[in-house]
């Protein structure tokens, strides 16, 4: 049987998620229910959206260190403007997405390191978030709350949302010509340019798309937590990068996998629940999360080696 390399790329993240899930079910059989699954994966939805956003940036060989502060900013806007006067809220979001597109253009045109520009932007988003919500508060818009807490039959909302996100981004990034251009800009800029495409436009579009997903992540987060504060999503920067890598993505070369990224985000979210079921002392929670990350990546290396051995035979 021959598997495409993109399918192989998916096996490892999917297997690690399955193993982790099996371990959780073994320790806490009651988690194997509608409510249990919903609780386990609830917070995974905003993380998955942020991971997809980070993935689009990584597809064009950049890295967004402002993801966490930007999602926090979006959460603050959602809990205040979008709730009180939806028109203003939407305008702010459009402005933010335009800012992302501009960032993509500036980074390319001036040949700046993306890490530094996004680092600078992380201060800007953090500052704006503090201006909007100096202290934790705000309320979630009714529809966001309804969407995130709705209970579709048989399958919990968190799972439905994750599948929708995974499939939608898969078709957008892996199956559309637009997606090919984005990955091409990461894999081989020159060939995209020679083929007559404007790299500036492609990169602007990629950054705007990332901004759009990050906005959705902020809205989803507020839908779950009902209120926001300026530091609500700071850890998303590192979580989103880790999610993309766990899901089989790579830092350079436009090698990414949207479905893998969503699975990676779910794995990271599940790792937290897994540790609390293990009754690990809170002191070691973060450390154990690091250990899980290492184990999963070691597994990936092991499987990659097996695959190579198969090929060389």
């Amino acid at each position: 049987m021959k598997l495409s390399s993109s399918a192989v790329r998916l096996i490892i993240p999917a297997a690690s998620l399955a193993v982790l899930l099996a371990a959780v079910f073994y320790m806490q059989p009651r988690a194997m229910s509608y409510t249990g699954l919903n609780l386990l994966f609830n917070l995974a939805v905003p993380i998955a959206l942020a991971t997809v956003a980070q993935m689009v940036i990584m597809a064009v060989n950049d890295l967004d260190l402002s993801m966490g502060t930007f999602v926090s900013f979006c959460a603050c806007v959602t809990a205040t403007f979008l709730q009180a006067s939806p028109g203003t809220g939407i305008l702010i979001f459009l402005g933010a997405i335009a800012a992302y597109a501009a960032m993509g253009v500036i980074i390319y045109v001036r040949e700046l390191p993306a890490i530094v520009v996004t680092l600078g932007m992380s201060f800007v988003w953090g500052g704006l978030a503090v201006l909007i919500l100096p202290s934790p508060g705000g309320t979630a818009p009714g529809w966001a709350r309804w969407l995130m807490t709705s209970k579709p039959p048989f399958v919990p909302m968190a799972i439905v949302a994750s599948v929708v996100i995974a499939l939608a981004t898969h078709f957008l990034i892996m199956r559309s010509s637009f997606g090919v251009l984005i990955r091409g800009a990461g894999g081989n800029v020159r060939s995209v340019e020679r083929a007559g495409w404007s790299v500036v436009k492609v990169r602007a579009a990629a950054y705007a798309l990332a901004g759009f997903f990050a906005v959705l992540s902020g809205i989803a987060l507020v839908g779950l937590t009902t209120s926001a504060d300026a530091n609500i999503a700071l850890r998303y920067t590192l979580l989103s990068i880790a999610g993309v890598i766990l899901g089989g993505g790579e830092f350079v070369g436009g090698k990414i996998s949207p479905i893998g990224a969503v699975i990676g985000a779910l794995t990271l979210a599940l790792a937290g629940s897994f540790l609390s079921f293990m009754r690990i002392s809170p002191d070691w929670q973060i450390g154990a999360q690091g250990a899980i990350l290492i184990v999963v990546l070691a597994m990936r290396l092991f499987l990659n080696r097996l695959e190579k051995r198969e090929k060389s035979r």
Partner: peptide, 26 residues
């Protein structure tokens, strides 16, 4: 300046410095 403006200006200054200094790369 308040904390919010301070952060925004810090960020913009970082970007401004890198924009000016980054010209050499081209």
């Amino acid at each position: 300046f308040g904390a919010g403006f301070r952060l925004i200006l810090t960020g913009l200054l970082i970007i401004a410095v890198i924009l000016v200094a980054g010209g050499r790369r081209s």
